[in-house]
Simulated assay, not measured.
Amino acid sequence: MDPADGLLEHPYDVYRRLRETAPVHRITGPDGTPAWLVTRYEDARAALADPRLSLDKRHATAGTYQGFSLPPALDANLLNMDPPDHTRVRRLVGRAFTPRRIERLRAPIRETADRLLDALGAEGTADLVAAYAAPLPITVICDLLGIPEGARRDFREWTDTLIAPDPAHPGAAKEAVVAMLGFFTRLLADKRAEPADDLLSDLIAVREEGDRLSEDELMSLAFLILFAGYENTVQLIGNAVLALLQHPVQLAALRRDPGQVALAVEEFARFETPGSLAIRRFPVEDVTIAGVTVPAGETVWVSLASANRDPARFPDPDRLDLARDTSGHLALGHGIHYCLGAPLARAETEIAVAALLERFPVLALADGDLRWRRSLRARGLVALPVTYARKSS
């Protein structure tokens, strides 16, 4: 029996058992290849910052990793890079996510949230993923990149396909990648011909000023910013709303003191971490993690979700507590690969939750079972059906 059996269906029960049994486990991934799973907080935090654990797939031993392959034009991104390339590329794109730029985005984010909520009726039922949690981040990230409105529905469909591929349609993920590659090729050509006030135009200008950003790196950055900027945030917003609806005492407390929503976002991220597993890593030499020797080149998965529920770091970790000290949570990573878009994801989630609670004093889960995406890496809802009533004017 594989120690990770049941992880998709009952992740926190399995993670609890794994933490209690041993700090590092040899498991079999969904693709049938072996991997090492790190589950305890201190070990996970150390592993995320260990320079011997490489993100570069060229360090993987043949046959030990068969992850989904992107074409070279999309694969030269920060999730596959180590220093010095990672340092160089991250510096170039970091200007998009400075505190000052994020602060300027807050008003447009709120306008988008209000527009989406305006589209809902005065009362009734709605799927908050489809109507709110998904279109908000896709609008924000597409505005940032300068992607035309007409393409945004396609991007959402392509990204959803890559987050949780449908086993019944094995070719869908490859088709989505081909479609995205073709679109970005055309879009970058258009931006070169007619630059605009957006991030893609800025990155093109940086490349053409000779700052050693290759064409594949440029294309891959556009892909990563879109994909990660959508994926993490839609899941964080949906998970946050679900957590509140399942914990009415915490919901009531936040309604009484909405000024605490920014702090609450940190607990939402810890409690239901949107990216359950950090991006896979490959030891460049034999590495000992919590007394377990992992051979060079084998795949290491660091469970952010398990680390964030480790009682050695967060007392009573399976309880949602908006007043909890969440400092040091790993939901958005740690070390040099800490999520570049974390400030934007936080701002979007804060604004999304605040706007929703302000508009709808009556909000509850609708009847029916909740369905989670079939993914070990991404923790997010397929749909979030709710009943609601708008605040009377």
Score class of each variant (00 low, 15 high):
residue 240 A to H: 13
residue 235 Q to W: 00
residue 236 L to I: 02
residue 267 E to V: 05
residue 270 R to Y: 07
residue 257 D to E: 07
residue 250 Q to W: 01
residue 251 L to M: 08
residue 233 T to R: 07
residue 259 G to H: 08
residue 260 Q to C: 14
residue 230 Y to W: 05
residue 232 N to W: 01
residue 266 E to P: 10
residue 245 L to K: 13
residue 243 A to V: 10
residue 262 A to V: 07
residue 269 A to W: 02
residue 232 N to L: 15
residue 253 A to Q: 10
residue 247 H to D: 08
residue 242 L to M: 02
residue 247 H to G: 03
residue 251 L to F: 05
residue 260 Q to T: 12
residue 251 L to A: 11
residue 236 L to E: 03
residue 238 G to V: 05
residue 231 E to Q: 15
residue 244 L to K: 13
residue 259 G to L: 08
residue 232 N to F: 05
residue 254 L to F: 13
residue 268 F to Q: 03
residue 236 L to Q: 11
residue 252 A to I: 00
residue 267 E to S: 14
residue 237 I to C: 13
residue 257 D to H: 06
residue 262 A to P: 03
residue 248 P to S: 12
residue 252 A to K: 13
residue 229 G to R: 06
residue 257 D to F: 00
residue 251 L to Y: 15
residue 251 L to N: 02
residue 227 F to G: 10
residue 237 I to Y: 04
residue 239 N to Q: 07
residue 268 F to P: 13
residue 245 L to A: 10
residue 259 G to I: 13
residue 265 V to Y: 01
residue 263 L to R: 11
residue 232 N to P: 04
residue 246 Q to G: 02
residue 254 L to I: 12
residue 239 N to L: 09
residue 250 Q to H: 09
residue 233 T to G: 07
residue 229 G to K: 02
residue 231 E to D: 06
residue 239 N to A: 05
residue 263 L to C: 06
residue 231 E to K: 06
residue 252 A to Y: 01
residue 257 D to W: 01
residue 238 G to E: 10
residue 264 A to V: 10
residue 263 L to M: 04
residue 253 A to H: 00
residue 264 A to F: 09
residue 234 V to K: 09
residue 257 D to T: 15
residue 271 F to T: 06
residue 250 Q to F: 02
residue 245 L to R: 10
residue 271 F to D: 06
residue 234 V to W: 09
residue 246 Q to P: 02
residue 246 Q to H: 04
residue 250 Q to D: 10
residue 237 I to M: 08
residue 240 A to P: 13
residue 261 V to F: 15
residue 228 A to E: 05
residue 240 A to F: 14
residue 259 G to C: 11
residue 248 P to V: 12
residue 267 E to R: 08
residue 251 L to T: 12
residue 233 T to S: 11
residue 242 L to H: 12
residue 269 A to T: 04
residue 246 Q to L: 15
residue 264 A to T: 07
residue 270 R to H: 15
residue 254 L to A: 11
residue 236 L to M: 09
residue 249 V to W: 00
residue 265 V to S: 06
